[in-house]
């Protein structure tokens, strides 16, 4: 297993697409978490981009005490979409390049190889979360120093809880991309379907259900995006008014946590069963 894991890490480390996705996630987090709010802050109270929010409030959103909000606030939707793409390209690439047959004719069993792939993806996601956190932390420290703001940090527990929650959210979407890639033995289709689901369908469904079919709210409350948003709300100080578009607080934290674990287990089990039982043609 260790050899397979090292092989998977080598593949991920040397693949430029992985770095591009990480870079995109990082840049998006910094733009929406710090650059745009800071521009709004420097233009004063009259800025339409702050929608009348006082400058002091805008500044507080960028200080170290809100670093976790800025790190993982966009994970349920935007970074989640990037994580789904990561899962789809890593697993789907094995089918489109035909490398799965090369890998499966080495020594390890199919389940071991898939396990190593998921473990390596989990590691990359962890580095991804930590990398964005460090970048956000540096920005918040810089802004606090420049604007004489508070240097108060969240507690270690809150930081760890936030980072772990963010990791789980991204991992759920990453595994969703992986299971779609296994199902379709492809890269493009899983990305297309997955991204459309994350960015459009779930929000649309939630909107339709809440306005036209309130009786089906239980159904939308089981969807991964809804639970990802709820988990992020539960581990941050984010409020619905400053949440990114599409991120909703619909269920409690513990329920969201269990639901995301269940999705991870389901996606892993489906991928494993399919990989172990299907012919590699």
């Amino acid at each position: 297993m260790l050899g397979s894991y090292r092989a998977e890490m080598l593949k991920l480390r040397k693949r430029s697409a992985v770095w591009v996705l990480f870079g995109a996630g990082l840049v998006l987090s910094l733009i929406f978490g710090y650059l745009l709010p800071y521009l709004a802050y420097t233009t004063g109270d009259d800025s339409p981009s702050t929608e009348g929010v006082p400058r002091a409030e805008v500044l507080r959103g960028m200080l170290p005490e809100r670093v976790i909000d800025n790190t993982i606030g966009g994970y349920p939707i935007f970074a989640g979409a990037l994580a789904l793409v990561l899962g789809a390209i890593v697993i789907g690439g094995e089918y489109t390049w035909g490398t799965l047959k090369t890998v499966l004719t080495q020594r390890p069993r199919r389940g071991t190889i898939l396990g190593a792939q998921f473990l390596a993806l989990g590691t990359v996601i962890a580095f991804w979360v930590l990398g964005i956190f460090v970048a956000c932390a540096l920005c918040s420290v810089g802004i606090a120093a420049a604007e004489s703001g508070s240097m108060t940090w969240p507690s270690i527990g809150a930081l760890l809880q936030g980072l772990a929650g963010g990791w789980l959210v991204l991992m759920t979407w990453c595994l969703a991309g992986a299971v779609l890639a296994v199902a379709f033995r492809n890269v493009a289709l899983p990305i297309g379907l997955g991204v459309v689901w994350i960015l459009g369908i779930e929000t649309l469904l939630a909107g339709v259900v809440s306005s036209l079919l309130p009786g089906l709210k239980w159904l939308t409350n089981t969807l991964p995006g809804t639970n990802a948003g709820s988990l992020v709300f539960s581990v941050t100080t984010m409020t619905p008014s400053d949440a990114p578009p599409g991120v909703r607080d619909a269920v409690g934290g513990p329920r969201a946590l269990l639901t995301l674990f269940a999705y991870c287990a389901l996606f892993t089990a489906l991928s494993l069963w399919t990989t172990r039982n299907r012919d590699i043609t």
């Binding site: 050899g3 397979s4 092989a7 080598l10 593949k11 390049w97 490398t99 047959k101 090369t102 890998v103």
Partner: peptide, 21 residues
């Protein structure tokens, strides 16, 4: 022959060696 196009021949063999021990 199916290998990872973004890796060198050497790296492709390195990772297969990792799988196979």
């Amino acid at each position: 022959p199916a290998f990872y196009p973004y890796l060198s021949g050497l790296d492709n063999l390195r990772l297969l060696a990792e799988y196979a021990g």
